[in-house]
Nucleic acid binder design. Sequence first.
DNA 1: CGTTTGCTTGATACGTATCAAAGTTGGTGG
DNA 2: CCACCAACTTTGATACGTATCAAGCAAACG
Lengths: 247, 247
Amino acid sequence: MVDTTSRAGPRLDKLQWNMVQVARTVPLFRGLAEEEWAAIAPLLHGHCFPKDAYIFFQGDPPDALYVIWMGRVKLVRHTDNGRDVVLEVLGPGQLIGEMAVLDTRPYSTTAQTLEDVAVVTIARRDFYDMLERYPRVAMAVITELSRRLRMTTEMVRSLAVDRVEQRIARTLLRLSELAGRPYDSRPGAIVIDIPLTRQDIAEMTGTTVETAIRIMSRFRKQGLVLSARGRVVILSPDELTEVARNG
Amino acid sequence: MVDTTSRAGPRLDKLQWNMVQVARTVPLFRGLAEEEWAAIAPLLHGHCFPKDAYIFFQGDPPDALYVIWMGRVKLVRHTDNGRDVVLEVLGPGQLIGEMAVLDTRPYSTTAQTLEDVAVVTIARRDFYDMLERYPRVAMAVITELSRRLRMTTEMVRSLAVDRVEQRIARTLLRLSELAGRPYDSRPGAIVIDIPLTRQDIAEMTGTTVETAIRIMSRFRKQGLVLSARGRVVILSPDELTEVARNG
DNA sequence: CGTTTGCTTGATACGTATCAAAGTTGGTGG
DNA sequence: CCACCAACTTTGATACGTATCAAGCAAACG
């Protein structure tokens, strides 16, 4: 499952970090004053990862909090019997590793890049200080945790009562909100701008590759989706929404 | 067969609230100073609910945050097709409704009492002020949200890869940690001190009543559990743990 | 008491996992 | 540039787990 193909992204290794600008931009620090951004900037550290790299592993001791600056990352939960579960795909501005950092327990998931990624790290101690000093930062963390909890809750519901077909439909629609852009060749259609294998789709929906493939084939035959080279196109979002609802 | 003596609950309707004492006791306000507790106390309001009452419904507009003072509450997510999912069972000291209050969106779940319950409510506006003023309170909220997210994540994993048998075993073990007390008639055995129907177990594990019943019967025949009158006894926690792991 | 609510069991159908084998694609190195 | 390789996708046959439908039973309740 390790892909070494690296599509030519921006020259991450040459990335120039302007940490004050980063502080200004990132949702975590939204609403702070200019001088607060300046105070925070020195505590931020830039880091780059190639596609398919691991930012941290489930079980690792938590040393830092990460804010995604560029690229997408998936959170994977490993299981004893070898089957993995993808909990979420996160993009620029979002946090990873915050829970582990906060309660000083090992990372509960693995964070793996889906493409070339740049992140900003904050040392645990520094992050703690920020939470105490800036209520706005704490609020931003609370907001993000709430969003995550909502989404995970919805995933529980879906796994508990939906069939695989509906779960995949839902997942595709969710990804299209996260990373969709118009598909030029067909008005109304949406490209999911994340490289996704059938294995990924299976792990996001709690099923096997074979079943994911069968369902995706069915969707294709029904004219709901297209897919090639790791990209999925939703041809008919409305019909797919219908499938997500009623099966 | 099973000891079901329901411990006579305190007279909730006669409960005398000492809000300073409440503020001192509740994890949400842990670490604050005595005068801060005093300042907060007037913003707290006591409220009681009988068994099986609804504290709020999924979809309701969020008016207040609740801290459980006494009794257990289940969070239920309703689905279009009528099947419900129990996300969590919460007890004294824990928060409910915090997410909705924080991002001003309708409650994402229904909170229903499992027994007689007393709660402390905090108006949305007041809670907001506390978060800004007391970093410790924000930290307590973050801690609780993290715990919830961890647990929900584990639930996703379990639903995605475990069979029903393992999910039920896990759920019983989790509940025994939350609300277990020794079972007098058998050393090592644990009574889950929460009234639970098979329907509840089914909704907690994403299955149907019939399947929940079949699995529980199998557990009983294997000498793993006992159950009667809404109480479940885990006779052999070790063997049940084994089932949770390997099926 | 009858009535309701929860529990139990059985027969059957359906969805999905599993196992097996072959086809496809993109990248690598000769 | 081609041939090969590894990873990914596809299809089929079969087995298993669980939902569904149906019916009866036990216990709690007003």
